[in-house]
Write a protein that binds this DNA or RNA. Sequence first.
RNA 1: GGUCCCGUCGUCUAACGGUUAGGACACCAGGUUUUCAUCCUAGUAACAGGAGUUCGACUCUCCUCGGGACUGCCA
Length: 436
Amino acid sequence: MSEIRVRFAPSPTGKVHIGNIRAAIFNWLYARHVGGKFLLRVEDTDLERSTPEAIKALFECMEWLRLDWDEEVFYQTRNVKRHLDCVEKLIADGRAYKMEKTSRDGKTGEVVMFRMPKEGVLAYDDLVKGHMEKKAEDVPDFAIVRSDGSPIFHIANVVDDIDQRVTHVIRGDDHVENTFKHLELFRALGAEPPRYGHLPMIVNQQGKPYSKRDGAAFVGEFREQGYLPEALFNYLLLLGWNPGDEREVLTRKEMVELFDITDCHVTAAKFDIKKLQWMNGEYIRRTPKEEYKKELEQRIAAAGLEVPAGFDMDLLAEQLQVRTKFWNDIPGNCRFFFTDDFEFDEKAVAKRLKKDGVKEILLDMAERFGKLEPFTAAAGEEMVKELSQGNGMGSWVHPIRVAASGKGEGIGLFEMLELLGREKTVARLKAAAERL
RNA sequence: GGUCCCGUCGUCUAACGGUUAGGACACCAGGUUUUCAUCCUAGUAACAGGAGUUCGACUCUCCUCGGGACUGCCA
């Protein structure tokens, strides 16, 4: 009868780690799959790091990945009184007790400890890992209130889950051991505990938890580098789950339909940036033409480049789309169309221009392109093809490309020249010849 | 050290006791192409090891080895 309610409960520290956001993704998908509620709880008890900016960054990150949540955001700091009330109840019931304790860093004070069962077996069925159990004697009592009177994670987390009526807790593998404690807390507070599912960790090539030392580790970094949110989302989903057939690139709709938390993997997954890069290219190629063009124009404008009137943006878009791996590549790839202030690639110059006969070819081509009618890609190609007499256009094409764009590779040469226009084409061929 | 979890190509994974152990990324070879990409075709590459159970084991059991998590007045 009851609706399924899951939550994403990050500590807002300004940056959202990919392992963390994956937990959000899995929670979101599960909620959408079963038609339940996806709640957001901000565990902002670390007053130093939980700034309004950090919370804003968190929201932006969620928005970017289109992880929309239901109901009001729940702020943990606003529930502190409830946490402490619950602790009082536990003490009154004999499930918690005060104790002098010395912390690791040598401070001594009175904390509140939660009393765990001393014998028997603690067990639960994990949604992804299956049956889990531990001897009660292996899980000692633990602190729930600090000597300064502030509630500790365990109690805050459980009380908030009770208050938010969370039915399924899907979180990282590092919380497995806590689950035995949390389950007892729920029961001691007279609440029905939720079902738990623990997601495997994302690790680096060495099998250690993936961190900033291993490369981009925060969602914002992927965004800055020009990854598409859908590509990151899709890739992260594949780390620990698959649709059951051989599809890998899935629409959001398919993901929601097919996802189930019980199909998730148990083993840690190594983060493979190469595959993410491939997937990003795949998403860019699948972007509808018009949308790609819009992004292209936007990126060009953002780079401070001015597009001349009459520039055939459709042609550029068509040519560039299959060659774009990251949105960020765009300005570098087409800067030379819009300004004469661009770099020449040394290697390309050495390989294609600094050769006998190239100067003559460039001057000759400047002349011919100066007269070419009409000045189109098709006409240009036909002209060079004729000159080459079927022996390959390489000796013309390569020097022209480098002379005109400064690069050894790029979009189709003749399309490139058409976009550049007669005037610039001729000028650049001549200029390059002069320099030889 | 203790407790718990895990172990299929380099990586992500498929396999519900019977397959030439499949796919994807990466890599590599070839084709298309003016370059670079895209696209198409082909290839290299894995059941951690050992005992069982079974007619038959990647699939079940046990042991060994290996990896990881936890073992806070952090979350």
